[in-house]
């Protein structure tokens, strides 16, 4: 629309012609903006149709998904039911996996965030031998495929008894293995994100705190942490979503054992046993999406900020 206003005719030869030109310019601008709106709407619609289809299917009575397309359910007579959700939450092992997902995700978010915050503080506000090289190595490790680590780590986990069968002070040791693994895998990104943020905190703040006699521990807990709440929030969201949605690490370190399997693993097993239970899969998928979607829509601002801080460097 700015195109229409950008170049007004300098000396209009005749008033009527000038008016007509402006009118036609406005018309063409409106037409092209209508086209633009339609194009954006069409793309957005295309993007949400897959999810929408699954959502509608999850509310249809059992078997209906297999005889007619979900779009036919949008016309009367409307016939929706909560049966699939009731079945999935009541009868399957989805409820324990829901619990397991929290059991895995919460510690696997807290530990790397805390460890990364300590390290990022040192990397951005302390001088020590090899600091820049160690940080560079961490940035490099961001690209390393996790697969490279599986065999020696699995051997180690078995050797130390950290597998899903064993008990570790009453806790299933499989959880412990997954927490430690996710901590290591998440740290390079976590340190990178937080160090980028800590580094741009105003230097005067640190100097005046030091003059007041505050040690590094006080500065960290009283100044750095409160000032970095946005960065820490976005890291927490990232790590939470990444662990909650992870399938590979869970498969490797806890396998398919139902006592420790998170939602992603149980869902995958449901897909494997597809056949007659496919209608439950729709509801099961949405059950698994509830928590990340709540986190995502409630904290979207921090999430986007985290992405920008982590990717658009500097």
């Amino acid at each position: 629309m700015s195109v229409a206003t950008a170049a007004p005719p300098a000396t209009p030869p005749a008033r009527s012609k000038a008016a007509r030109t402006r009118w036609s310019q406005r018309l063409s601008a409106n037409v092209s903006s209508a086209g633009l709106n339609v194009a954006v709407l069409a793309l957005t619609l295309a993007w949400i149709v897959p999810t929408l289809g699954l959502l509608i299917n999850s509310f249809r009575p059992g078997g209906a998904f297999n005889t007619s397309g979900w779009w036919t359910a949008l016309a009367p007579p409307f016939n929706f039911t909560l049966d699939s959700y009731r079945a999935v939450l009541g009868a399957s092992d989805l409820a324990p996996s829901f619990f397991n997902s929290f059991m895995i995700t919460i510690p696997a978010t807290i530990i790397p965030t805390a460890v990364a915050a300590f390290a990022a503080y040192a990397f951005s506000w302390m001088r020590f031998w090899g600091r820049d090289w160690i940080f560079l190595a961490l940035v490099g490790l961001l690209a390393v495929p996790l697969q490279v680590t599986f065999i020696p780590l699995l051997t180690l986990a078995v050797h130390m008894g950290l597998t899903s069968g064993n008990n570790f002070f009453g806790l299933n040791a499989g959880f412990l293995a997954v927490w430690i693994a996710h901590t290591g895998y998440g740290l390079p990104f976590a340190i990178y994100l937080l160090a980028n943020f800590f580094r741009v905190l105003p230097q005067d703040l640190f100097e005046s705190a030091e003059i007041d006699g505050a040690g590094p521990v006080t500065v960290f807990f009283r100044l750095v942490l409160p000032l970095s709440v946005p960065a820490i929030a976005s890291l927490v969201i990232f790590q939470f979503l990444w662990v909650w949605n992870d399938l590979l690490v869970a498969l490797i370190y806890v396998g398919g054992t139902p006592e420790v399997a998170p939602l992603t693993v149980t869902l995958t097993n449901l897909v494997g046993g597809l056949g007659q239970h496919i209608e439950y899969l729709t509801a099961a998928a949405f059950v698994s999406m509830v928590v990340p979607l709540i986190v995502f829509f409630a904290l979207r601002r921090y999430f986007v900020r985290g992405i920008l801080a982590g990717s658009v460097k500097g």
């Binding site: 599986f150 780590l153 430690i180 740290l187």
Partner: peptide, 30 residues
Amino acid sequence: PSVRPWVWVAPAIFFVGLILVYPMVGTVVR
């Protein structure tokens, strides 16, 4: 000043070393 930074980075270096660096070397050898 030369000891203190290592206190802060040690947990991170421990986890990254254990979970990423050591197994990476191990896999290449293997």
